[in-house]
Every structure is written in structure tokens, then in C-alpha cells.
């Protein structure tokens, strides 16, 4: 159930990549989380958030992470992004330990946190500009804006965007760096149901085309089952892996397929939101 750490996600291992769609093999962006425990200090006392977490995620794989609110999902992504150092344990990408943030690992934050003093276009330009590549990658900025459907609002300031548009802008800002590992922290949380479906499709197409490794944190079990190769269910804080559910149904998926319905019920049961919770 728990991904075993021996089967490392080092550069040699490409077998875990989810299927042979698009036919392009990618050998980067594999993740290994080895016995990671993380504690925050809250009111001077340690608050354990992750409890000896061990995971292996193959390169090019699309993994969803679900878990109760406050269980430590965002913390896991922050550790992978290199924004926090774990209290114990280690994290690797392609066999190399994570030592800090790196543009090859992009994080789409739970809050869009766009820079309010920059227009949408200039927000998307942050990545290329910070890496000193703005001159050569200006076209890519325009293409990425096109991709998330914000071309018409390229010159708007964040205060002029709706919540969903801001999230799409944040997504574009992460994608423009063409990351090997894309960490998504409920990136579609603020979208209405229709836009959400459309964006899920876009995200999936993007992933099929580019085959980066994707880790999607979400509250929406349907979303997880529709998109991911596998769903990791975390427990309440401190988070452990409750289940690691492979999703093998062929894409495109409709969540009312029988197999997915069973998996959905299983996951909701684990999260304490299954049929029992309603009686």
C-alpha cells in the first residue's frame, strides 16, 4: 500500500510512468519521499503534521492527493517545492536530494498570490524574468496565456480579475517555466463547476502533451479519479498514507463508470465521508 522506498524514483526507473499515452518517454521529475516527518512550531510547542511519510512517484505520473482539511497536504507540497526542510527524513527528485526551490519544480499555490502591481502578462513573465530568459521566452508567455484563456486580460491587473481567472493566471505563471514536476495545491478550488470541468480537461491535455510529473492536491474525489493515475489518501494530522489507489480506467473518464464508483466510495469511506457518515 505504501509505496516502497526501495523502488526508487531515480533516473533509471521509467516503468512507473502512467501508461504509454503520447508515446514520449520522460525520465525526469520522479519523486521519492523517504520517511519524512514534519513538525511546525505552534505556540512554542511542536505540531506534528507529517508522520514518517514514504512515497514514490514515478516520472511522468499524475498523482492525486486527498485528505482531510488541515492534514498536511499543502505542507507536503511545500516540502517538495523546497520551501520547507523536513524535521526528519529526506526528499529526492530524480535521485537528488531537494535542497531548496528550483524552477524545474513549480508550485501552484492554494491562494493565487498574484503580484498585484503586475499585470497578468507581467505576472506570467516572472519565471522567465527571474531566470534571465525573458528575451527569448516572450512568445512562450503569450502562448501560455492563450492556453489558460486569458489573452484578452493580459493587460488587466489582478484586482480586476475574478477568483477563477486569478487561479488560471497563477496556473499560467507556473506552466510557463515548463516544469518537470508540477505541484498543484487545489488549483481549481475556486472555479465554478463548468469552468472546473473545462480546466480539468485542459490540465489533462497539457499533461498528456508534455508528460511532466504532476501531483494534484484536491478536496474533490471525483476530480482526483477523473485525472490521476493514482490517488493517495492521507489520514488526519499527523498525516500518514491511508491508501494508495491505482486508477486504471482508460481516459477520458466519466466518474459514473462502475469501477470508478466503487473506488470513489472506498476513498470517501476512508475519509470518513462515506455512507456511514450520513446515517
Amino acid at each position: 500500500m505504501v509505496g516502497n522506498s526501495v523502488n526508487g524514483a531515480g533516473g533509471t526507473n521509467g516503468s512507473t510512468a502512467g501508461g504509454e499515452v503520447a508515446g514520449r518517454t520522460v525520465t525526469v521529475g520522479g519523486v521519492r519521499v523517504a520517511g519524512v516527518t514534519h513538525e511546525y512550531a505552534l505556540h512554542g510547542r511542536p505540531l506534528p503534521v507529517l508522520d514518517d511519510l514514504t512515497l514514490t512517484i514515478g516520472s511522468g505520473e499524475f498523482t492525486a492527493v486527498v485528505g482531510p482539511s488541515g492534514s498536511g497536504k499543502s505542507t507536503l507540497l511545500r516540502l517538495l517545492a523546497g520551501l520547507e526542510t523536513p524535521t526528519r527524513g529526506r526528499l529526492f527528485v530524480d535521485g537528488r536530494p531537494i535542497q531548496g526551490p528550483h524552477p524545474s519544480r513549480a508550485l501552484v499555490f492554494q491562494d493565487p498570490t498574484l503580484f498585484p502591481w503586475r499585470t497578468v502578462r507581467r505576472n506570467v513573465e516572472v519565471g522567465p524574468q527571474a531566470r534571465g530568459k525573458l528575451g527569448e521566452q516572450r512568445d512562450r508567455v503569450g502562448e501560455t496565456l492563450e492556453l489558460v484563456g486569458l489573452s484578452a486580460f493580459a493587460d488587466a491587473y489582478p484586482s480586476q480579475l475574478s477568483g477563477g481567472m486569478a487561479q488560471r493566471a497563477a496556473l499560467a505563471r507556473a506552466l510557463v517555466n515548463e516544469p518537470e514536476l508540477l505541484l498543484l495545491d487545489e488549483p481549481l478550488g475556486r472555479l465554478d463547476a463548468l469552468t472546473r470541468l473545462a480546466m480539468q480537461r485542459e490540465l489533462l491535455n497539457l499533461w498528456l502533451a508534455r508528460r511532466f510529473t504532476a501531483i494534484l492536491v484536491t478536496h474533490d474525489v471525483d476530480e482526483a479519479l477523473r485525472l490521476a493515475d493514482r490517488v493517495i489518501v492521507l489520514s488526519d494530522r499527523p498525516a500518514r498514507v491511508l491508501a494508495d489507489v491505482p486508477v486504471t480506467a482508460p481516459r477520458p473518464r466519466l466518474t459514473d463508470e462502475a469501477e470508478l464508483r466503487v473506488q470513489r466510495r472506498h476513498i470517501l469511506d476512508l475519509l470518513g465521508a462515506g455512507a456511514d457518515a450520513w446515517t
Binding site: R78, A81, G82, L83, G100, P101, H102, P103, R105, A106, L107, F109, D111, T113, F115, V126, G127, A130, R131, R173, A174, N177
Partner: peptide
């Protein structure tokens, strides 16, 4: 949060 965003972007 602003620093976090900028750092993850390089």
C-alpha cells in the same frame, strides 16, 4: 507568500 512564489519560479 510573495517570496515563496518568486522563489519557486527561480
Amino acid at each position: 507568500a510573495y517570496y515563496d512564489v518568486a522563489q519557486t519560479l527561480g
